[in-house]
Amino acid sequence: MNAKRLDAVFAFLIAATGVTWFVGESGSAGPAAVSLILGLAGVKGWLVIREFMLLRHASTLWNLVVGGWLAFVLAMIATTYWKALP
């Protein structure tokens, strides 16, 4: 593993967390805000899966299973959110 690559991933993860925190603290609500925070959660999760859990060295099947879990959970959350909109 490349240490600089891990540091860059960590820096992005922290920055993305800051954005999510700001969305929450500013009281932002609605589809745009939710799309942003769920999208960021997806990118963060994918980076953890690929770079920290090192699935980028594993087979496509393993990436599909774990990445598919992430995509399915986020899609399900987004779907229920949209269905609940007035």
């Binding site: 929450g24 609500a29 939710v34 925070i37 920290f52 859990m53 959350i77």
Partner: peptide, 23 residues
Amino acid sequence: GAAYWHMVDLVWIILFPLVYVMR
């Protein structure tokens, strides 16, 4: 051990926006 710890982190990455922020 590392793989298990990263799983704990991965789950929180979804839990935080879902419970604390999404509205």
